[in-house]
Write a protein that binds this DNA or RNA. Structure first.
Lengths: 136, 136
DNA sequence: GCTTGACCTTCCAGTGACAGGAAGGTTTAC
DNA sequence: GTAAACCTTCCTGTCACTGGAAGGTCAAGC
């Protein structure tokens, strides 16, 4: 099949598939007589594997490692598990950051009247001097 | 004061301050006889305002709008409130995505033995065919 | 006066993971 | 014959910076 069909089946865009080939994340696709890339179901499976890994938050370097494990029949499952647990921790940290940010935003919105006047608690909070006031 | 002191007080890096000047987010700093940028407390306040806005998740375009409101004494606080509420919604969406991703990761880790063997539920999940199985 | 080190300047390149688009070749359908 | 829908490569742009090179300036110590 051509690249657009491989894209449809794998869940990646054709652009992304070419990019992954470019950076040697996947092996170069076979080519037809016309120079078009040709994909078989095995190639599509790898692409789909990558799409899934990206969806749950792995970056391309990690995807490379996961794909290496997937290809390696003598792998050790603890290596995959380590990657997953580390990524989970990273997501947890990021989630906590975003929640904290959102709390600040909510607090600002709650205090702001949001009317036609210029007085605005949001801008006041953003403009507030750093805590630990110096006196000069 | 010079740029490194302004950086220290505002919470931005000197690099970032120059960058903000470069993209016209802040007005060009005054220059001393030696060509060094000079900052007064008013300039530092604006930089600090930007640092705060970035911390709670606004991108530079939004920072530009917020700074515009901050400078405009005839502003309407509802404009600031709209920006905050929209950003809050965006963060909420992002948080939900990350939580969903993390759930998948946790489920994978829970099912994987994580030992010396090759059998690995994580890789199985990532490699699983798209749902809605075709039969060819 | 000289050196050392900490500043400062500008400018260019790189990051991650692609997306958009130009310029051109191929295939398919009518 | 031609239009459209593919495909190819190559270049640029995104976002918000960071790192580094090459070079000018300043303050302190000897």
């Amino acid at each position: 099949m051509n690249i657009s069909e491989a894209a449809r089946r794998s869940g990646l865009s054709a652009k992304t598939i070419r990019y992954y080939e470019d950076i040697d994340l996947v092996a170069p696709a076979a080519r037809g007589d016309n120079g078009y890339r040709q994909y078989d179901s095995k190639a599509v499976e790898e692409l789909h594997f990558l799409a899934r890994a990206r969806e749950v938050g792995f970056d391309l370097l990690e995807c490379r490692q996961l794909l290496g494990l997937q290809r390696d029949t003598s792998r050790q499952s603890r290596h995959a598990r380590q990657l997953v647990l580390e990524k989970s921790r990273q997501l947890q940290t990021r989630i906590e950051q975003l929640v904290a940010m959102q709390k600040v935003l909510q607090a600002m919105a709650d205090r702001c009247k949001g009317d036609e006047g210029p007085e605005c608690a949001i801008l006041e909070v953003l403009a507030a001097a750093p805590e630990g006031g110096e006196s000069a």
